[in-house]
């Protein structure tokens, strides 16, 4: 599904190298988690994959089902099936959440040569999916993320994911700022989307989220590289001992 090879990335301004040769493959139907200390390059990886400005790829490749992601505009990556749930979802005053969702869904359908959803069809689907995430009609009407609590913003990200039905989902610290109940709600939303054809890359600092979203593979990232890969037990090890042991072991 997602294949990253030897990815090297610098900041456009300042020449600072952030990713120093990331190799990672996420298969369809699998959940991979990336853990790592602050500043290890986890969020940068998610931004580079989704096409945010400000980064220069100096070496390596990233493909989604064989298609070169790095050559595409952000909207083309989305239409190809990539989705990033933001760590800090952006507030957009004056644009209704529903308008935003419908614009996004139909833009992607159009890009893929599919027919756009009618207002009625769209409404039916969105209501159904919103309900399971406990997003009420009022929240759907409000401007995108404006005045939303931290939990509401993250639930809104998952709703977008559910509506867009991507092939490859990247979750960037989706657990940050969430209390236990909110985390469970978000995790349930993610788990409902797990399927044979869909890959997940879950970026997190803490093992907590991985209690709810059970990963198949866990990677440890430090200093711009994946330094260790293992099963779910690796997350527990980090939780118990911190990153110091693993970093020392690698060095």
């Amino acid at each position: 599904m997602l294949e990253i090879k030897n990815l090297h990335v610098e900041l456009e301004e300042g020449d600072k190298q952030i990713l120093k040769g990331v190799d990672l493959t996420v298969e369809a139907g699998k959940v991979h988690a990336i853990m790592g200390p602050n500043g290890s390059g986890k969020s940068t990886l998610s931004y580079v994959l989704s096409g945010r400005d400000g980064y220069t790829v100096t070496d390596g490749s990233a493909t989604l089902e064989g298609e070169d992601l790095l050559e595409m505009e952000p909207e083309e990556r989305a239409a190809a099936g990539l989705f990033l749930a933001f760590q800090y979802p952006v507030e957009i005053p004056g644009v209704g959440n529903m308008t935003f969702l419908r614009t996004a869904v139909n833009a992607q359908r159009k890009a893929r040569g599919e027919e756009e959803l009618s207002a009625a069809e769209f409404l039916k689907v969105v209501r159904e999916k919103a309900k399971t995430l406990k997003i009420d009609a009022e929240m759907l009407k409000r401007p995108v993320n404006v005045g939303f609590s931290g939990g509401e913003k993250k639930r809104n990200e998952i709703l977008q994911m559910a509506m867009l039905e991507p092939k490859m989902c990247i979750l960037d610290e989706t657990d940050s700022g969430l209390d236990v109940d909110a985390m469970k709600l978000v995790a349930d939303g993610v788990n409902a989307l797990r399927s044979e054809g869909r890959g997940f890359l879950v970026i997190t600092h803490y093992q907590r989220l991985l209690d709810h979203i059970k990963p198949d593979v866990v990677h440890i990232m430090a200093n711009g590289r994946i330094i260790k890969t293992g099963g779910p037990e690796l997350a527990l090890e980090v939780e118990n001992n911190g990153y110091a042991d693993i970093l020392a072991e690698v060095q």
């Binding site: 933001f86 979802p89 957009i92 935003f100 833009a107 867009l164």
Partner: peptide
Amino acid sequence: YLRSRGVPKKDAVDLLVMS
């Protein structure tokens, strides 16, 4: 943010103008 959801750049700019 808008483009990452699949909204083409021109449409995204228009949405932000309306915003």
